[in-house]
């Protein structure tokens, strides 16, 4: 695949998926996240941006050859190696399974729990408690799966690991305090293994794990 | 890929994606959706089901070789041909883009609008009005994309078409009455083309388009 530009705002966990994939594939990826290259809320509302990316959403990728792509999973997939995508049909299928798991089982409750602690959403006690239960259920499934596995699919990092790690970032940083995450040692081990891979570190930097569960920030 | 069994409840649009893909690939797919093969709410809570499919959700696929897979997009992908998945890296990326578009831009507002009309959820006027606006926005994007295209990606049916069609089924059958869908002629043309493909027809049967927008079913 060709080199290109990834339009995004800074510290966008969705963009991290594509950026980490590019670290593995060696694709030269320019990240346009600050003025003058990209101003979120302005650049992505301009006609020429919307011509290429009709939803105006980021991350959005434009190859140096003009190829345009939106939806973060599609971009990460495009910038990946064959190994990241899965070297057999069954591996590819399992990778897609976990990528979809991240979107459907992790992101909704993780966001519902974390956003009020970041002060970007109203706090609702019932919604937060329900989100916590969903997160516990999800972590239990992951923990059982990772009982005898180093990575989610196969013996090496794949897009499954990249996607699920990026989807768990906010809760590991904001709310999964040590006592809360203690029942999921396999997930903690796997998460630590991944974020310490050089390709993850190059994008995420040092990930500081939650020490005390953040509460609603009014 | 091997033949296998798809566990689901009947008339599950998520399962249709996999079933249509199997029509194209010729994979022999047993659909277990009724007793005694499968009783939704019972079979999927049994320990041996949860061993294979830890979320207990359907559709769930088990190959005759024992290979287990959940998440409908992963199953549809696994049961597809290379042509359905995209014959070039760029085509594959665009297909993934539209598959994710379906999950993020179609399903949330479609569910919010349609569920009350099916008696699945309580009616909320504000949520319904917001959902209608989001559906209009989404249909506009699709309509513009399909202005000069017969299919979403390339010159033939791909997983993109299968996924987006199945995701639009509820709204085309329940709420997109003729006046509401009139501003989106390209989408209507494309939708009609797809549902009349033999492989779609074999799974969906005759799709009766909405004649009058369904209202809240108490």
């Amino acid at each position: 695949m060709a080199a290109g530009t990834l339009y995004t705002y800074a510290e966008n966990w969705r963009a991290y998926k594509a950026q980490i994939a590019a670290q593995y594939s060696g694709v030269h990826l320019k990240v346009a996240s600050t003025p003058p290259a990209f101003t979120f809320g302005q650049t992505n509302r301009l006609p020429n941006f919307l011509n290429s990316f009709p939803l105006g959403k980021v991350p959005a990728f434009q190859g140096d050859d003009g190829f345009c792509l939106f939806e973060s999973n599609a971009i990460a997939h495009y910038l990946s190696t064959d190994a990241l995508r899965g070297s057999t049909p069954q591996a590819s299928a399992h990778i897609l399974q976990w990528v979809n798991f991240a979107d459907s089982e992790i992101i909704p409750p993780a966001s519902a729990w974390v956003f009020p602690t970041l002060g970007i959403m109203q706090f609702n006690k019932q919604a937060t408690e329900q989100a916590k239960e969903e997160v516990k259920r999800m972590l239990l499934v992951l923990n059982q799966h990772l009982n005898t596995r180093t990575f989610l699919v196969g013996e090496r990092v794949t897009l499954a690991d990249i996607t699920v790690v990026c989807s768990l970032l906010w809760i590991y940083k904001q709310v999964l305090e040590p006592a809360f995450r203690e029942p999921y040692p396999n997930v903690n081990r796997w998460f630590g293994t991944c974020i310490n891979q050089p390709q993850f570190k190059a994008v995420l930097g040092e990930v500081k794990l939650c020490e005390k569960m953040a509460q609603f920030d009014a | 890929m091997a033949a296998g069994t798809l566990y689901t409840y009947a008339e599950n649009w998520r399962a249709y994606k996999a079933q249509i893909a199997a029509q194209y690939s010729g994979v022999h797919l047993k659909v277990a959706s009724t007793p005694p093969a499968f009783t939704f709410g019972q079979t999927n809570r049994l320990p041996n089901f949860l061993n294979s499919f830890p979320l207990g959700k359907v559709p769930a696929f088990q190959g005759d070789d024992g290979f287990c897979l959940f998440e409908s997009n992963a199953i549809a992908h696994y049961l597809s041909t290379d042509a359905l998945r995209g014959s070039t890296p760029q085509a594959s990326a665009h297909i993934l883009q539209w598959v994710n578009f379906a999950d993020s831009e179609i399903i949330p507002p479609a569910s919010a609008w349609v569920f009350p009309t099916l008696g699945i959820m309580q009616f909320n006027k504000q949520a319904t009005e917001q959902a209608k606006e989001e559906v209009k926005r989404m249909l506009l994007v699709l309509n513009q994309h399909l202005n000069t295209r017969t299919f979403l990606v390339g010159e033939r049916v791909t997983l993109a078409d299968i996924t987006v069609v199945c995701s639009l089924l509820w709204i085309y059958k329940q709420v997109l009455e003729p006046a509401f869908r009139e501003p989106y002629p390209n989408v209507n043309r494309w939708f009609g083309t797809c549902i009349n493909q033999p492989q779609f027809k074999a799974v969906l049967g005759e799709v009766k388009l909405c004649e009058k927008m369904a209202q809240f079913d108490a």
Partner: peptide
């Protein structure tokens, strides 16, 4: 980054919809 996160489209209600759908189809399937 946090401010822009507020603009993200997240289906917060998804678990609620999944649950409603599950119950509906469980009832429908007896």
């Amino acid at each position: 980054g946090v401010d822009f996160l507020a603009h993200e489209r997240i289906w917060f209600d998804k678990p609620r919809y999944d649950e409603a759908e599950r119950r509906f189809y469980e009832r429908k399937n007896g």
